[in-house]
Design a protein around this nucleic acid. Structure first.
Length: 425
RNA sequence: GGAGAAGUACCCAAGUGGCUGAAGGGGCUCCCCUGCUAAGGGAGUAGGUCGUGUAAGCGGCGCGAGGGUUCAAAUCCCUCCUUCUCCGCCA
């Protein structure tokens, strides 16, 4: 959510920046009228309330003196009626304004390249060498089936499309990666570990920006009005919702493991094979709550933490600075880390690291005080995948495959895999 | 799931219709006392948000949330949420 005061005082500037996103901002123009109407109604009702309060005092005084107060009571009756009418209109206006504010995306940072779609994303850096196979390389879904690591058809039977069973070495690999990543971030990068609830309420989904605009992307639990989390970002960021944290405790950093659930509405036909696009996948997520002046340094830091995982696993990747048209609703700036995937003969997103500035903090009402006497300010929030596990498994399987159909285990992962050297031998 | 009880400021807690933005503790800040620590004495401090104003300020809201009754609600009524206790069920 944007700062109402900024929107009020700097409307054209904000609008100009939002237009870089190339989104339809149809309702934005209604802001000024709604804002003005709201403030007029507030002034009207408050004036009447002040009057009512004064008269109530007088009535109380008269009653105590056992005097007659009927004429004052009559007057206040009418005033109260009027207040009720104005308050009803005010409430409707505020509701409309709130919905409008919740539907406005974040303002892109000045360092974000202007562009329409993924074609215009800029490569920030590249790491590692793309493997060359002197044999016909297999895709991970082939390897997974051949080696008994992944069962797609069983999952289709048991649940439906876009689900998978990890089995044997596949399950072990996934679990090893969870431990590897959690320990790296907790012990080397200073994050506190978390395992969050996998369902959250509507307020939490609104707090991080999944709602109200993107309800069709989430799986909902109707009876409770809960949602399956699409990422641990939602519960972990909302962990501090409606709180004022001590400024000296910033930055607060959590690393959370969770399953993630996405309906993938609108992705029919995309990435239909393998682990790349599932309705349920595991992810280790990094979340940081920081002071506003630090948030862009922090974005570099969190991106580095995610990159470190790929470096230790020796998987080639590149970092993309997402353009204005590909930023997503909530981010002010975002880096996607893309891992090399031989089956795609291309890089594929494996982590997304975003600075939301105060966009989520306003929605979720997360603030801090620099000291006990200071005024509360909104924190800046950031998160980054560190990493998406399914895609990491796919990347390891494909990049580390050997001609005999087995998979070499990356050195860094061997302690977590019973010190084995290969899968399939 | 059933039955009870409770939700008041940073924490504990008093308060059943008007003089309560809210007693009293604790905490916190300052001072005194004290060789140090502990303890003691005194004074002070009460949040947040919205509107308005250059500002000091003024005003509205606020006692879990939302409605209602009333001239007037922390206080009465209704709905919901959360926590606790007991029972049931259960990994």
């Amino acid at each position: 959510m944007l700062d109402v005061k900024r929107l009020r005082n700097d409307f054209e500037e904000v609008k100009r920046k939002l237009q870089k996103r190339g989104e339809n901002l149809g309702d934005l123009e209604k802001f000024e009228d709604l804002d003005k109407k709201r403030r007029t109604l507030i002034q009207e009702t408050e004036e009447l309330k002040q009057r009512r309060n004064q008269v109530s005092q007088e009535v109380a005084q008269l009653k105590r003196e056992k005097k007659d107060a009927d004429h004052l009571i009559q007057e206040t009756k009418e005033v109260s009626q009027k207040i009720k009418e104005i308050d009803t209109e005010l409430k409707e206006t505020e509701e409309t304004l709130q919905q409008l504010l919740l539907s406005i995306p974040n303002i892109p940072h000045d360092s974000v390249p202007v562009g329409e779609d993924e074609e215009d994303n800029e490569e920030a850096r590249k790491w590692g060498d793309i493997p060359v196979f002197p044999f016909e390389a297999k895709a991970h879904w082939e390897l997974g089936t051949d080696l008994g690591m992944l069962e797609f058809e069983k999952a289709s039977k048991v649940t439906g499309s876009r689900f998978v069973f990890y089995k044997g070495a596949g399950a072990r690999l996934e679990r090893a990666l969870i431990n590897f990543m959690m320990e790296l971030h907790a012990e080397e990068h200073g994050y506190e570990e978390m395992i969050p609830p996998y369902m959250v309420n509507r307020t939490s989904m609104t707090g991080t920006g999944q709602l109200p605009k993107f309800e069709e992307d989430a799986f909902g639990i109707r009876e409770e009005d809960y949602f399956l989390i699409p990422t641990a970002e939602v519960p972990v960021t909302n962990f501090h919702r409606d709180e004022i944290v001590d400024g000296t405790s910033l930055p607060i950093a959590y690393v959370a493991y969770s399953a993630c659930f996405r309906s993938e509405a609108g992705s029919a036909g995309r990435d239909t094979r393998g682990l790349i696009r599932q309705h349920q996948f595991n992810k280790v997520e990094l979340v940081r709550f920081v002071k506003p002046e630090d948030s862009y340094d922090e974005l570099e830091k969190i991106t580095g933490h995610a990159e470190k995982v790929l470096q230790l696993l020796k998987l080639p990747y590149r970092v993309m600075n997402m353009c204005t048209g590909d930023l997503g609703f909530t981010a002010a700036k975002k880096y996607d880390i893309e891992v090399w995937l031989p089956s795609y003969n291309d890089y594929k997103e494996i982590s997304s690291c975003s600075n939301f500035e105060d966009f989520q903090a306003r929605r979720a009402n997360i603030r801090f005080k620099r000291d006990s006497k200071a005024k509360a300010e909104h924190v800046h929030t950031l998160n980054g995948s560190g990493l998406a596990l399914g895609r990491t498994v796919a990347a390891i399987m494909e990049n580390y495959q050997v001609e005999d159909g087995t998979i070499r285990i990356p050195d860094a992962l061997r302690p977590y895999m019973g010190n084995k050297e290969f899968i399939g031998k």
